[in-house]
Design a protein around this nucleic acid. Structure first.
Lengths: 198, 198
DNA sequence: AGATATGGACCGACCGTTCGTTCGGGCGAA
DNA sequence: TTCGCCCGAACGAACGGTCGGTCCATATCT
């Protein structure tokens, strides 16, 4: 038989498990405030062992941010996000963006906290801007097509939309009750009000 | 004549000017990634001179966070925020919260980035939670009073509201055109949709 | 008025600590 | 024996913070 599935024998695990642990630490303390020793301790190995799996601290950040960016842009490539009226496409993208945010929570959280100190962080910021620009263009399309009320500034609406969706990472935690319908709830809030009149 | 107004003769200025400069650096690089030498350079004085005005790095953070918290809680004490129906009070608080966010932009921005690494940061987090709890209680009141549609989960609505409002610090910059009506625009977006149907 | 003392603002040099990273080697499975 | 995985010890750099002292406008003394 061919080589079986390589499974982690130690609790520290392989690259992916190490990355997940590290991202968790980055999120709870902040990237700069987290030392390589913090990461090693959380993973159950020494600092020098960590360098056997990753070239350095920034390589960890890079790997995490790439995963988040990949997930986010995957939403834009979805078939349902590329056909139909602008308002419907916007609905699909919103709901899917929320879903990516839920499944890739730690990585997207990290992406949303990047400040642009290093080349890696600046790359991530540029990708975020590109994503937001795509959403903004879609809102403009929807206004022109008359599919949303004309008293909205597309730029403002797009910013508030991004802000609303992205803020979910501040409180959503997987496995908590009442969040199964979150993507649809967010779409409804966006189109008919967060606190709608009766 | 009595002693005249003491005015800063040097560009570096007194405590307030120093604090403003420091907060600006904290925001653009992140608190942990900003060194005391970065701050001194930005203020035009040496590191040791900076310690003449502030006890240390954390004292700067504390001063900035206190200013932000004070501004935010001032909104809850407004007369219009304490009388009338829950929906109207919510409207007032939302608009005023946006206004505080605009006038105290750098300080509130810093407050929203705190992670809880030090005692000062944990205090700030606790104050933020208290503010959010007040808003959440108000949303619940509005639902009970029938002033908003009953298909909203008050907890979710309150979280999305906070997220939407707070996300403004990510893009709002003073003196930019088209933001004069921002508080009212946010209230409208919250009650009838960010991207409202026609 | 002129000499002297006071105190706030500022500075260069330095301290101990912690940081990210490197290095040489140990150890068990294949 | 090789190779993946791991380790303790150490590196130079940068960090937050301290120290003794200079400068100078103003207040006080003679």
């Amino acid at each position: 038989m061919s080589s079986p599935v390589k499974r982690a024998r130690r609790p520290s695990g392989g690259r992916d498990a190490l990355l997940e642990t590290a991202v968790g630490e980055f999120i709870s303390r902040g990237y700069d405030a987290t030392s390589m020793e913090d990461l090693s301790r959380a993973a159950g190995i020494t600092k020098s062992s960590f360098y056997h799996h990753f070239a350095g601290k920034e390589a960890l950040l890079r790997a995490a941010l790439e995963r988040a960016v990949h997930g986010l842009f995957g939403v834009l490539d979805l078939p349902e996000a590329r056909t139909g009226g602008p308002a419907d496409r916007l609905r699909v993208i919103l709901a899917e963006q929320v879903r990516v945010l839920m499944t890739e929570l730690p990585y997207v959280t990290l992406l949303l906290r990047v400040r642009g100190n290093t080349e890696t962080e600046r790359w991530a910021l540029e990708r975020r801007r590109a994503f937001d620009a795509a959403v903004r263009a879609l809102v403009s399309e929807a206004v022109v097509a008359g599919e949303v009320r004309s008293d909205v500034d597309p730029a403002l609406a797009a910013r508030l939309l991004s802000g609303t969706v992205n803020s979910i990472v501040e409180w959503y935690r997987p496995g908590r009750p009442g969040t199964a319908t979150l993507p649809e709830d967010v779409v409804r809030a966006a189109f008919s009000g967060i606190v709608p009149a009766p």
